[in-house]
């Protein structure tokens, strides 16, 4: 079967005045209609990988890849216009904080309807109808009221639901979620994950879940890619996380405090220079 997404030897680099910073260094993986988690600490290149797939890399960066194919389309080879059309329609991304990714001066409903209309030629009434349906699908209890609210008038959890609604309304086949729940309270986090879980399952989408939280990713995804210093250090099924081999993965799992365990001091990750090679 042809994979939904094929990433082969992806490099992203940022030239600065004195040197070139390599954010992503030769990342390769494939994705079917499944849930893939990308885990790493800050600076590991996990977010830049997601952005490169979306085509949201800053203009001053250089991207190259052996292959970067979405559904057989070579993403780096197509013109910017075609890329834009793919984005939102077939590929979509949820960012960490809804506060910064929703337009503050447009009501939530209108933003979602706007997204829908920029990808399909449909009338006002229909786009409103489908927006309300979508708001319901992300378990917003009173979609008619929320439709007319502005982003600052809703809570973080509600904002992130609206964000998910906006990203899924056009029916994308691949969703990239970059730390979608890190800005939220733990109990709200689970609600959001449940919604994502259900929608991804129902619609048969591919999902890339980017997070720093190894255990959360492992509990949510089918497969986990662990990144360190711009490289993939380990790929493994989520269920096999306990049997991870790479010392970095093991160290990450180990260094978190756990309820009911007394480890003083906590084991500390000893970074080995050869991991970054």
């Amino acid at each position: 079967m042809k994979p939904l997404l094929l990433v082969d030897d992806l490099w992203v680099s940022f030239p600065t005045r004195t040197e070139t910073v390599e954010a992503v260094r030769g990342v390769s993986f494939t994705l079917g209609r499944e849930r893939l988690g990308i885990v790493g600490e800050s600076g590991s290149g996990k977010s830049q990988t997601g952005r490169a797939i979306m085509g949201l890399t800053p203009a001053n960066a250089h991207i190259r890849a052996g292959r970067l194919q979405f559904d057989g389309i070579e993403l780096l080879g197509i013109p910017a216009r075609q890329r834009r059309r793919l984005r939102g329609k077939r590929l979509s991304m949820i960012l960490q904080d809804p506060k910064y990714s929703l337009n503050p001066v447009m009501s939530i409903g209108r933003q979602i309807a706007e997204t829908l209309r920029s990808h399909e030629t449909i009338g006002n009434a229909e786009s409103r109808e489908r927006t309300l349906e979508m708001l319901e699908a992300v378990q917003i209890r009173n979609p008619h009221r929320v439709y007319d609210l502005y982003p600052h008038e809703v809570s973080g959890g509600m904002g992130q639901r609206a964000m998910i609604a906006m990203m899924l309304v056009a029916g994308p086949e691949l969703l990239i979620a970059d730390e979608p729940t890190s800005a939220l309270d733990v109990t709200v986090q689970l609600d959001i994950l449940r919604i994502l879980d259900r929608l991804v399952g129902e619609r048969g989408m591919g999902l890339i879940f980017i997070s720093h939280d190894l255990r959360l990713v492992a509990s949510f995804c089918d497969r986990v890619v662990v990144m360190y210093a711009g490289k993939v250090v380990e790929q493994l099924p989520a269920a096999a996380l306990a049997r991870a081999e790479h010392p970095y993965t093991r160290g990450l799992l180990d260094c978190m405090p756990k309820i009911g365990e007394q480890r003083h001091p906590l084991p500390v990750l000893e970074r080995q220079p050869e991991w970054a090679l």
Partner: peptide, 15 residues
Amino acid sequence: LDASVQAEVLNLLEQ
């Protein structure tokens, strides 16, 4: 902070 750095800082605080 990142998880591994968190462990270091928590250890420092305990110390």
